Amino acid sequence: MTEVRYEVTDGVAVITLDAPERRNALSVEMSQQLTDAARTAESDQSVGALVVTGGSHFCAGAVRSVLADTGRDPVEDGAYRNLETVYRAFTTVGEIGVPTIAAVRGAAVGAGLNLALATDLRIVSRTARLLPGFAQIGIHPGGGHFTLINRVAGREAAAALGLFGEEVDGERAVALGLAWAAYDDADVLERAMALATRVAADPALARRTVGSFRRETAPGGMPWDVAVELERSPQMWSLRRREG
């Protein structure tokens, strides 16, 4: 039985994590399903945006057995590949060539927080819980955790969450720049879909634009004159297309 649901509405692909009995903690199989769903969205040229959500609980991280197996023998081939599969779930979401939004209700913990931060934008519930969770179980952060926090909210937030294990709710996440907006639980997915549907109305333009966005906002930044040149080609493409 699949633990990842996939559907497309009005050009928006929606990936829903569906293992509520463990609060959507990522197993190896679920991680592979998530990767496959993200690649399916990318390969469908009618899709102009992707929303990742998890129902009442976003994602409680990786299942403990994956971490335990890795801990027993970190370089054993199977354990190493299994953890790599979990990592690939959120790195794939962060790399596919369409704009991505995380619609976060409940908790986003560890790898689940990485998944949310891998997207281009986050819409969260006011009562959402965003926390690393690594220190609480006695392990070092993984999956590029510090980089993900730093690139959306800066060094201070990366220290508070990743180093000192702080937890923030949805409204605090917005104040820190970890999320764009916070709403009541019942409105989170609808608001995320409204944003996604707007950009997905023109899938080709959405794909061109998100490529420029990611290059220009990559860690380290980009000089303005370089950004002008980088945007020139896709803008010329869009103008020529509009004029027929």
Rank of each mutant, 00 (worst) to 15 (best):
R23N: 13
A25K: 12
D225Q: 13
A103P: 01
E7H: 15
G143A: 07
I101A: 04
G78Y: 04
V174S: 07
V4H: 01
G78S: 13
G144D: 01
S31G: 01
G106C: 08
A107F: 06
V52N: 04
A201W: 03
R241F: 01
S46C: 03
V93W: 12
R129Y: 00
D18M: 11
W224F: 08
E3Q: 14
R64Q: 14
R105S: 09
A60Q: 04
G143I: 13
A68F: 14
E190K: 11
V228Q: 02
Y87A: 01
N114S: 10
A107R: 11
V66G: 07
V210M: 06
C59W: 05
D225S: 13
Y183E: 10
S125Y: 00
D120R: 02
A194H: 06
A89R: 02
A159P: 10
D225V: 10
A79P: 09
E156T: 14
V104L: 12
R208D: 10
D187W: 06
V86S: 04
I123W: 00
T147A: 03
Y183I: 05
P234V: 09
V47F: 14
V52P: 02
R122W: 01
D169L: 02
E29G: 12
G110H: 03
G177Y: 00
P99D: 11
A204H: 11
T70A: 05
T40Y: 03
A204V: 10
G142S: 01
A19N: 14
R129K: 06
A196T: 12
T127R: 03
G244Y: 03
I149N: 03
F90N: 11
A19W: 07
S31W: 09
G11Q: 13
S27H: 02
P132T: 02
S46P: 01
V109N: 10
D73L: 05
A19H: 06
T92C: 07
V66Y: 00
I15T: 01
V124R: 03
G142P: 09
R198S: 06
S46H: 15
D187K: 01
R23E: 07
T9P: 03
V168K: 04
M193F: 07
S43C: 01
E42F: 04
D202Y: 10
A173V: 03
V210S: 03
I15R: 08
V109Q: 02
A41D: 08
M1S: 15
E190R: 09
A111N: 07
V28S: 05
D202K: 08
I101C: 07
G133L: 00
E229T: 05
T209N: 15
G162F: 03
R242F: 02
E171K: 02
G55Y: 12
V228C: 11
A111V: 14
A194G: 15
D77A: 15
A227I: 10
D18K: 07
E7A: 10
V98Q: 04
G138I: 04
D120N: 12
R64E: 07
R214D: 11
E229H: 14
A204W: 09
I123K: 12
N82R: 14
R39M: 02
G55I: 06
E76D: 06
F146K: 12
N24H: 07
V52T: 05
G112D: 02
A49W: 08
E167A: 06
T209D: 13
P99H: 02
G143N: 00
T217N: 14
